[in-house]
Design a protein around this nucleic acid. Structure first.
Lengths: 164, 164
DNA sequence: TATGAAAACATCCAACG
DNA sequence: CGTTGGATGTTTTCATA
């Protein structure tokens, strides 16, 4: 797979505003709308672009408390098992297995401290979780691209999803 | 500002695919297309939705190495100073000040380990940084919403931004 | 292999009920 | 909030380099 300069500029234009029309993007980079669409289609087929998503202000949606939870798992817990276990939490925005002492780092958005604590306790109670260590976000400094996913649409555990 | 169930479902539908048509979203939640658009417009005006962006596979774009860097700052370093200092790094995808021992957690995407090390060393060399602690991401498990930004358009990956 | 032009189709969106 | 219809965007087809 080869990404040339035009592809990069298309991705860049979409990163700024994913709902821009192909004609607009084409005008920005000197291509016609169909040409842009063909490249976007190719980028999606190749997996370079994995989707389009909305940028939300968690606080405006009532998710005012953000934190990171490090998870320490019992041995022989596969990444897939962790993923399946965590996918049920709508409060989890991202999760990754990592090097170092912890096995995974999970980013959580909760309505408030009480809600955050509930999520933390539920995660800590998962059978494969031995212990956790968490920090709260004081203030977000930078938020740029959305990375990933390989992530199926909508785990949707329902409930607990309507703060405020 | 009040978000009801319909608004949440709209945001959810857009989080899955921000280029879905208003008619499709309307069909999902039992509303007409114009009604959906009016709500999306209102959510944008209120700041709940801050934009639309593309989801990229960093590896496909040549950014194969991801990690988190905890930053321990010298005293009396303001969050604004940290933000200004970090904003110059195109490799930083997100950064937040946090509770606990570290002052900030920074998410970094680099082309490879060598590039990651360079970024780490440059950050560690910032005048306000006393020490750092970093972990590498082994595998991303979940990637959902894009949070934020308050972040001007175009961090401009510029140079250093074309691996492969 | 990649492009632009054009046509058919779908979506958007302001005005109205 | 739903419906309408003109404007706009999308996507396929086709011809060209």
């Amino acid at each position: 797979m080869r990404l040339n300069d035009l592809d990069e500029r298309i991705v860049h234009a979409l990163a700024e505003d994913a709902r821009r029309s192909y004609a607009d993007i084409g005008a920005m980079i000197g291509l016609s709308a169909p040409a842009v669409k063909r490249r976007v289609d190719r980028l999606r087929a190749e997996g370079a672009i994995t989707g389009f998503t909305v940028r939300v202000d968690p606080a405006a949606l009532g998710w005012e408390t953000e934190g990171f939870i490090e998870i320490y798992c019992s041995r022989n817990t596969s990444p897939e098992a962790i993923k399946r276990g965590l996918a049920r939490y709508p409060e989890i925005a991202s999760a990754s297995t990592v090097t170092g002492e912890a096995d995974a780092i999970v980013q959580v958005f909760a309505a408030d401290m009480r809600h955050f604590e509930q999520v933390l306790e539920r995660i800590a109670g998962e059978p494969y979780v031995e212990r956790t260590k968490s920090v709260l976000v004081l203030s977000p400094l930078l938020r740029r691209y959305a990375a990933g996913p390989p992530d199926g649409p909508d785990p949707e555990p329902s409930e607990a999803a309507a703060p405020r």
